[in-house]
């Protein structure tokens, strides 16, 4: 099977102003949130670790705009972006990062485990590969229930070398599940380049044919491309056409996590990818296509105001009560294991 490469949207989106404003709002909000998360980590307010999507916003944005409200998102520990892109309130996400009772998981999840079922954000999974089979399960359930829902599963390039990736793709195809697998290939697993440890050039796309899937590589830094690709794959899944595997090429602006300055990456590579920054580039495109700059400025101002408000709310929120640590092990609300 040949590889489909998509580096520009094939549809003329210049007339779809609301969609594109939605995409711009998404990338700007995620960018503003992630920059704030970084700052709060440096201030010691975000504890543990955090994995940012700076530079990779367009992928979550494209899918966030293309998904139906009741579709399911499964993402990784680098999941602030995907969780926000489903409409999860920033205050709840920020509260979770700060370990506060106001967090979406009451402070029990943290940066790596954001979940907001109400918004279709079905969890951020911190074990590489774990959530691909789980996304299949949600898709299987949707298929059985005839609900028309689609599960979208985001993961990194490093995931393509773990067994669960292969088990999940095979079962998704065999059961013709309404699931979209999205590999965010940012060229590095953690510290090691994916190309140094992978048998094929394109870690996801080159494996697609083994599972009877189309090999698709797209520009993950282009919101228009991501929206179009997402719309196509989701429609295919919703109409019974089965799973898709999309490899979105992108780049993280920083290291793998807060402990990593990312110094293993060549300067010229970093510089080249910074010229492909999705946020300013998309802004320039929208202006070139005739969108009013004041509208974009309003979007930016609102995003920053939302991040400020979320930060203030999280800072002001109390920590979880100690008793809460004993809650919700079981469905009865408690943690008792004996009588």
């Amino acid at each position: 099977m040949s590889t489909t490469q998509i580096t520009e949207a094939t549809r003329d989106l210049s007339s779809e102003e609301q969609t594109r404003l939605g995409l711009y709002r998404q990338v700007v909000r995620i960018r503003a949130f992630e920059e704030r998360a970084y700052r709060l980590f440096m201030e010691g307010l975000v504890k543990g670790t955090s994995h940012l999507s700076l530079g990779m916003e367009a992928i979550a944005a494209g899918f966030g705009e293309a998904m139906r409200a009741d579709d399911y998102t499964f993402c990784t520990y680098r999941g602030h972006a995907h969780t926000l892109a489903r409409g999860t309130p920033m205050a709840g996400v920020m509260g979770e990062l700060l370990g506060r009772a106001s967090g979406v998981c009451g402070g029990k999840g943290g940066s790596m485990h954001l979940t907001s079922v109400e918004h279709g954000a079905m969890g951020s999974y911190a074990i590489i590969g774990a959530h691909l089979p789980i996304a299949n399960g949600a898709a299987w359930s949707a298929q059985v229930r005839g609900s028309g829902q689609v599960a979208v599963c985001f993961f990194g390039d490093g995931t393509t070398n773990i067994g669960a990736f292969h088990e999940a793709l095979n079962l998704a195809k065999v059961w013709n599940l309404p699931v979209v697998f999205v590999c965010e290939n940012n060229l590095y697993m953690e510290y090691t380049a994916i190309g140094d440890v992978t048998a094929v050039e394109h870690p996801a796309a080159d494996r697609a044919s083994a599972y009877g899937l189309e090999s698709i590589i797209v520009d993950g830094n282009d919101p228009d491309v991501m929206y179009e690709v997402a719309t196509t794959a989701i429609e295919r899944a919703r109409s019974g056409g089965g799973p898709s595997l999309i490899e979105a090429k992108t780049y993280r602006h920083g290291g793998h996590s807060r402990a990593d300055p990312g110094e293993y990456r060549p300067d010229d590579e970093v510089a080249e990818w910074l010229t492909r920054d999705p946020v300013p580039n998309y802004r320039a495109r929208l202006l070139a296509d005739g969108l009013d700059e004041t509208i974009l400025e309003d979007v930016e101002a609102q995003a920053h105001a939302d991040v400020d408000a979320a930060t203030e709310a999280a800072r002001a929120a109390p920590p979880p009560q100690v008793q809460a640590a004993y809650n919700n092990v079981w469905a009865d609300g408690g943690s008792s294991w004996r009588n």
């Binding site: 590969g129 774990a130 089979p133 789980i134 088990e167 999940a168 079962l171």
Partner: peptide, 23 residues
Amino acid sequence: DTPISEEAILGAAMGAAMTGLRP
């Protein structure tokens, strides 16, 4: 019937249980 893929089996069960089935 499933393939011999234990992670795929339990993942399917987990995702389905999260979303309305009792697998």
